[in-house]
Simulated assay, not measured.
Amino acid sequence: MEQTKALNAQQPYLALTKSATAPRAAADLVTQATSNPNTYVFAELLQTPQIQALGQSADYAAYLQLLEIFSYGTFAGYHAAGSTLPQLNAAQTLKLRQLSLLTLARDPHNLSYANLQRDLGLPDARAVEDLVISAIYADLVEAQLDPRNQTVHVSSVSPLRDLAPNSIPSVLGALRAWSGRCTSTLADLEAQVAAIRNAAAQRQAEQRAWEETQERLAEEAKNNGGGNNGDDQQQRTSGGGGVHGRGQSRVLENAINRLRGQRSVKRGSGSLDASHDEDEAMDVDEEEPDDGEGGSTRGGLGGGKQRASRRKL
């Protein structure tokens, strides 16, 4: 936007060069163009035949040199030329300092207050700050003042400086170096992205393997638990796996518990005589067989008499 505005401001002076056939008229045109506060590019004006003809005039050749300084030179270069160049008015002085600031801003090391004061011919730090502020308001630079550190921080510079003669090879070299740095940076970024993707894929594979292991272990635990439950159910269905049925087992358990209870009572009372054991014995009647005589009995009062015997269980 700034470059378009500067090019539009140069157009009236390009039109006036057609009538500036005399060296004095061409010199006056140079003074007017460099004094205009909106004109910052001079390459087209410098290449016109009328302005180039000033180099053939002994009285006005300095105006051609002055326009070259405004096009791609600096304020320090103007002072280095000495008194051979025309005297600058206030508007020209301010503009040349502003254009010189654009050139110096390419190197951040040149932006200390001391360097700017020396290269721009300024009397003190306050003049440096005023110049930078004027350049900011003219949309020439985007910068911030740092009075504490006595430096200027420039973030962007308007492309309003013309190229000096034979400067294209150096510019191409700088652009190739910049392109090489960009290519190297992109390669490094691609390598980092590939490494991040590989690490993410490895973590995903490890996570998948861990989940599969957990599922396999859970399935094995489920299968083992299900087999034990089936055996328990089978044992409960078959009545404990013994040779007796459920009812027979209960009868035997009750008889054993009763006998154990009776023996415990005897141990507690201390009575171990045979008569006490006989009282606790179970009476079982057994039928004595006939001795072959009808109606005769052995030691009894009639035929078919039974003899009672005791059997101790």
Score class of each variant (00 low, 15 high):
residue 2 E to D: 10
residue 4 T to G: 12
residue 8 N to S: 07
residue 12 P to Q: 05
residue 15 A to V: 00
residue 17 T to Q: 03
residue 20 A to L: 04
residue 21 T to M: 12
residue 27 A to L: 04
residue 28 D to I: 05
residue 29 L to K: 04
residue 29 L to T: 01
residue 31 T to D: 02
residue 35 S to L: 10
residue 37 P to Q: 06
residue 37 P to R: 03
residue 37 P to V: 05
residue 38 N to Y: 13
residue 41 V to R: 01
residue 41 V to G: 02
residue 45 L to T: 01
residue 47 Q to S: 08
residue 48 T to H: 10
residue 51 I to A: 05
residue 53 A to I: 03
residue 55 G to C: 03
residue 57 S to A: 09
residue 58 A to D: 11
residue 60 Y to T: 00
residue 61 A to K: 08
residue 62 A to F: 11
residue 64 L to W: 03
residue 68 E to W: 02
residue 69 I to T: 10
residue 69 I to E: 03
residue 70 F to V: 04
residue 73 G to S: 07
residue 73 G to F: 06
residue 76 A to K: 08
residue 77 G to D: 06
residue 77 G to H: 02
residue 78 Y to F: 12
residue 80 A to K: 13
residue 81 A to N: 05
residue 85 L to D: 01
residue 92 Q to S: 11
residue 93 T to Q: 12
residue 94 L to R: 10
residue 99 L to T: 05
residue 100 S to R: 01
residue 104 L to N: 02
residue 109 H to Y: 14
residue 110 N to F: 10
residue 110 N to I: 01
residue 112 S to T: 15
residue 113 Y to G: 07
residue 113 Y to N: 06
residue 113 Y to M: 04
residue 114 A to C: 04
residue 118 R to G: 05
residue 119 D to W: 05
residue 123 P to Y: 13
residue 127 A to C: 05
residue 129 E to L: 08
residue 130 D to M: 06
residue 130 D to K: 11
residue 132 V to R: 06
residue 134 S to R: 05
residue 135 A to S: 12
residue 135 A to C: 11
residue 136 I to M: 15
residue 136 I to V: 14
residue 137 Y to G: 06
residue 139 D to I: 02
residue 139 D to K: 12
residue 142 E to A: 15
residue 142 E to G: 14
residue 147 P to Y: 06
residue 148 R to S: 14
residue 148 R to A: 15
residue 149 N to G: 14
residue 152 V to Y: 09
residue 153 H to T: 11
residue 154 V to Q: 03
residue 156 S to C: 04
residue 158 S to A: 15
residue 158 S to F: 12
residue 159 P to R: 07
residue 165 P to I: 08
residue 167 S to T: 14
residue 176 R to M: 10
residue 178 W to S: 04
residue 179 S to Y: 08
residue 180 G to D: 09
residue 182 C to S: 08
residue 187 A to P: 00
residue 189 L to Y: 10
residue 190 E to S: 15
residue 190 E to I: 15
residue 199 A to L: 06
residue 201 A to N: 03
residue 201 A to Q: 07
residue 209 A to H: 13
residue 211 E to I: 08
residue 212 E to R: 13
residue 213 T to G: 13
residue 214 Q to S: 14
residue 218 A to I: 03
residue 220 E to Y: 13
residue 221 A to T: 04
residue 223 N to P: 00
residue 223 N to A: 15
residue 224 N to Y: 09
residue 224 N to D: 09
residue 224 N to E: 12
residue 227 G to P: 00
residue 232 D to H: 11
residue 235 Q to H: 09
residue 240 G to P: 01
residue 241 G to E: 06
residue 242 G to H: 02
residue 244 H to F: 10
residue 246 R to D: 01
residue 251 V to D: 12
residue 254 N to K: 13
residue 256 I to F: 15
residue 256 I to W: 14
residue 258 R to G: 12
residue 267 R to H: 06
residue 272 L to F: 14
residue 272 L to K: 08
residue 274 A to C: 03
residue 274 A to R: 03
residue 275 S to F: 08
residue 276 H to S: 07
residue 278 E to G: 07
residue 278 E to Q: 06
residue 286 E to L: 13
residue 287 E to M: 02
residue 287 E to G: 01
residue 290 D to M: 08
residue 290 D to E: 10
residue 291 D to T: 00
residue 291 D to V: 00
residue 294 G to N: 10
residue 295 G to Y: 10
residue 296 S to I: 02
residue 296 S to R: 13
residue 300 G to V: 01
residue 302 G to C: 02
residue 306 Q to S: 05
residue 306 Q to C: 02
residue 308 A to G: 05
residue 311 R to W: 01
residue 313 L to E: 08
